[in-house]
Design a protein around this nucleic acid. Structure first.
Lengths: 230, 230
DNA sequence: AAAAGTAATTATGAATTCAATATTAACTAA
DNA sequence: TTAGTTAATATTGAATTCATAATTACTTTT
């Protein structure tokens, strides 16, 4: 593994640990050994421990006094709560975007949307999801609210390690595409109330949670990658 | 100042620094001297620096590589963005509260509401605001969404150092009380859509921002306590 | 063999030390 | 004086060291 030799070492280390968690190389509930990670990254305990404290504030790990750090266990409830929150933030981003977005930005999103439709018709789920992500990111950016963006990306990072795309049924997919059609229309009309409502109710959030609920048993901690796929 | 001799030192230190910021003992933009704070708190640089990193992720201070930490300058836009976000979160908390709240909890909030009305009629702004806070906190708790609660309290902390209560006009106050009346009714009917809408539009959020806008010049950083009172 | 207690080991919490970077002060030259 | 340069100082960044708490291994006892 490539050693780190950068400034803002603690932030770099925190990101790297975040990656390990996202990719399942650190399991939920697993005790995080400081020494091991120090050796892995080639840094001393000082920046590593700073990183752990930051990751705890970001909600990725939890710190037990005198008993080390461990990766947060994602229960179904925790994931659902996070998605509820993300939906509310998306709703707000839609409302704000309508107030600030330029014609040029709308055109760019329309283009992304058209490309996304291509992938939808070709049943290319992975490419579809990437475009989908870019559209939502575009709206978030157009909201011009940096605090909102910061919060959203933090929430998104917390649940990144759970992926459910494969479980998406055709019916759900069809509905999601319809939602997107309505979104773009609301955006072009700059109807903030409508776009906010659409985004709050948008399947992309609820769907994944619903799917997840069907896949895992209630209240059981989600072992990451147990429901995973592309 | 009382020395700290507790476990989870970094968290304690972070809270104490947060208090200093809230009460204006550390000015926005002011460089934070590690040595000074170490002496003030009677701790070494290690836990102090950990606290600084945590406070940076919480959005209270910013870290400039090799150039120390400074208190975040609150611009009008930053405050407005934060309040927009808080309003959205309150809206969500209302929706969720309707789904989970017990009759007992509703009764408790109704009681708080009645007490608040007392203070309203007596023009006791301070007591009014405290009850107001407790009501919103009650709804937040009833939402049963811990991630939401965590996020809300973080946002709230970011803008805590700005207070505007004195600027509240009677008309605004009257409207706020009407809003609250509607809130309680919606809550008792468990009408989540309605309560969500009321809370999103609730004056308590918008009002303060609007007031602030009238008091400070646009885009100028808000020196905390410059608009203060209560 | 199982349980309880004790010693040895390991890991964490925090202070200190060392190194690198930035800031300030002092000095020189125009 | 003032701009520019260099040296001195102070501050930050990171590693190391020391202290303390937790875990494990090992006895001892029943």
């Amino acid at each position: 593994m490539t050693k780190i030799l950068q400034r803002n070492l603690y932030r770099e280390v925190a990101d790297r640990i975040g990656d390990l968690i996202e990719h399942g190389e650190l399991s939920p509930g697993e005790r995080i050994s400081e020494k091991q990670l120090c050796e892995k990254f080639g840094v001393s305990r000082t920046p590593l421990r700073e990183a752990l404290k930051v990751l705890a504030t970001e909600g990725l790990i939890e710190l037990l006094p005198n008993r080390g750090a461990r990766v947060v266990r994602l229960t179904f409830k925790k994931v659902k709560d996070t998605y509820d929150l993300m939906a509310a933030l998306e709703g707000l981003s839609g409302e704000l975007a309508c107030q600030h977005i330029t014609d040029k930005e709308i055109a760019a999103i329309r283009t992304l949307h058209n490309n996304m439709l291509e992938h939808y018709h070709q049943h290319d789920l992975k490419a579809y999801f990437e475009l989908n992500r870019q559209i939502h990111e575009g709206i978030l950016t157009a909201s011009q609210n940096e605090v909102l963006q910061e919060m959203y990306s933090n929430l998104s990072q917390r649940v990144k390690r759970v992926r459910y795309s494969k479980k998406m049924t055709q019916a759900f997919w069809d509905q999601a595409v319809k939602d997107h059609e309505n979104m773009i229309n609301a955006l072009e009309k700059r109807d903030s109330q409508l776009l906010g409502q659409i985004l709050r109710d948008h399947l992309c959030n609820k769907l994944e949670v619903a799917t997840l609920a069907g896949v895992i048993e209630d209240e059981a901690p989600i072992e990451e990658h147990s429901v995973v796929n592309a």
